[in-house]
Write a protein that binds this DNA or RNA. Structure first.
Lengths: 359, 359
DNA sequence: ATGAAAGCGCTAACAC
DNA sequence: GTGTTAGCGCTTTCAT
């Protein structure tokens, strides 16, 4: 029964009857040509017996580790965020960065994760409004959210495409629509509401709305309530289309329509936003806005890395560590705090013609 | 233009005209009552000017950090694995562990991620067959896969429920079924094939099969090919039900059926495995096997932590670090290498009656 | 209230 | 081939 301390290379050296540096040599793999085969085995055996593992913290303190970037998303089960993470992770690894994931909804929690780890940069996706910026002078880029202050950001340019969607509905003859909103308080959802409202206003379309949590069950309930509340003539609802803030909500609306004995899209048209796999699984396939999540993550990470490299070149970059990033040498001269907008794309899938008027 | 080295507490001390230990005091937050307000400000200003951030590696080398567990999944976009991760992560954090995610398909890649980070334990989900066990003496538990050697494992007990599913189909009158397999070479999919084969054998049911990649598109193609190849009488397929290895595949079969002008479930019954959100989004809702992914992750993590604690109690635990885990004090005396099986559950949703014989 | 000094476990010259 | 030695940047007594 040894004491609670983890065995060190010194312990191994003592047991093997060699010096500590020999142990180091063996474990660094630099033993070829340097350490005798016999000694090597002795050391390895002693290490195994003690359960020795080199202390990564000490090693990194000495030689420096690869640079690390933290990617924060509010919910990794949501396939949209998973895609953002995947896109960002790929770019980071390509550039030689280690990636650490932080599943947090607000910046303060992210900051807590940043402390205590040797993080060189932060990419934060879809944070809730109102968090204070990171105290640490860690370069950060925010995705799909209001940039805290001088931080760069990458977002979707949803408004014009959402407008296009409403235009499309209007052109098909829809005059009264419902807007099923997400109750998540992030910038993107505020923008969606503004865009829908403005487009409806412009066309003189009647608009009712409700908001609910970002899951199918809540959407089903909210949509049912909306249908009950705004019942129109002839058992038809008082609106002919439901514009949803998210594909997940649209599925709930499909369910609610079925519950109410309404056919989609014959009696009610439904649209979503995101274009996750659900969108093509439902029948009829969902008309939605495609938001390229992987590209969002990748673009954000590229900007972040570019900033890091630029800082390093200027020679004033804090946290210049040993590992050197490969690739990702972008000569662009973007403004650091610029807000890049990625285009969304309207995907018209199911028929969205309104039911015959006065039916 | 300073040199490339990151500023240290020494640099800050020099600029602020104080000693290095004072800087340390200030940044540790222990400054209350120890460091004068005036000195504090000076130090903070100097730090800000230099862009100083305390080196986390050095700090952890000195005081020890919280213990870290690495969770490995093959694909974080897949909501099933995301759920496993989420369940495992929750348990780990509850017990005071830091969590790091590794998205890798095989054990060797996971091992590479383990090296270089101060990992105390590994939870690896759904690894491909044939990887060698970790060289490092790091406690590991594998999920949903063959345990490498003496490692513990947690898996689903799918066979009996899959048998139940086939029994169910047989009872409804199905006599000729197709099995759409995943081509992923992991233990769980091998077991699924064995279970379906055995059950069909026992009932004397005719069975055809195909395998494809784990996505809807591939499944759609494979199912279309299967339908074309095994065309029966009267435009009906040569089988009345398709048992799929995964919900994602089932959606492809729904599509292929629609392509072929077949109604689900009137002309063709379809079942899945997993019970992800897709299962209830499609029409008719999918009959499937519910696999509690979060519970899989949580159970695996509990076992892993129990092993860690046990080792620590015996006093021979390698890597005993400073942070102490809270909670998770399980007095159980399970065998470490035991293979726990979690129950799956049959969810009968859509009607799965076969079309009238000789239709 | 602040400073001096001794390491944490490891790597990397440099000696022998 | 193997041992000696000097730190990496930080925390933490112990003096002052």
């Amino acid at each position: 029964m040894s004491n609670g301390r983890a065995p060190t290379s010194h312990d191994v050296a003592r047991l093997a009857g060699v010096s500590q540096s020999t142990v180091s040599l063996v474990f660094r793999g630099a033993s070829s040509g340097r350490v005798g085969e016999r000694t090597r085995r002795t050391v390895l055996d002693a290490a195994r017996e003690l359960g020795f593992r080199p202390n990564a913290d000490a090693r990194r303190l000495r030689v420096g580790g690869p640079r690390m970037v933290l990617i924060a998303v509010p919910d990794i089960v949501n396939p949209f965020f998973a895609r953002v993470f995947t896109g960002a992770r790929a770019v980071a690894r390509e550039a030689g960065f280690q990636v650490v994931l932080s599943v947090q909804r607000d910046l303060d929690s992210v900051a807590a994760d940043v402390a205590g780890q040797q993080i060189d940069a932060v990419l934060a996706c879809s944070l809730e409004d109102g968090g204070r910026p990171l105290e640490d002078p860690v370069p950060a880029v925010v995705l799909d959210a209001e940039p805290p202050q001088g931080q760069g950001s990458v977002r979707f340019d949803i408004a014009p495409v959402l407008t296009e969607l409403v235009d499309h509905l209007h052109r098909l003859g829809h005059r009264r629509i419902a807007h099923l909103r997400s109750d998540v308080r992030t910038a993107t959802f505020r923008e969606r509401t503004e865009a829908v409202d403005a487009a409806c206003e412009r066309h003189g379309m009647t608009r009712v709305h409700a908001s609910c949590a970002l899951d199918t069950g809540s959407a089903r309930e909210a949509a049912s309530a909306l249908l009950a509340e705004h019942a129109g003539s002839g058992g038809r609802p008082g609106f002919t289309a439901v514009v949803c803030d998210d594909d997940v909500l649209s599925v709930g609306v499909y369910k609610a329509a079925a519950d109410a004995g309404l056919a989609v899209p014959a009696d009610l048209s439904v649209t979503g936003i995101d274009d996750v796999d659900l969108a093509t699984a439902v029948t009829p396939e969902l008309t939605t806005l495609h938001l390229p999540g992987e590209e969002l993550g990748a673009t954000g990470m590229r900007r972040l890395i570019a900033r890091l490299e630029r800082g390093a070149e200027r020679g004033d970059g804090p946290r210049a560590r040993a590992g050197q990033a490969a690739g990702a040498r972008s000569g662009s001269a973007e403004t650091e705090t610029e807000c890049v907008r990625l285009p969304a794309r309207l995907l018209v899938r199911g028929s969205t013609a309104p039911p015959a008027a006065g039916g």
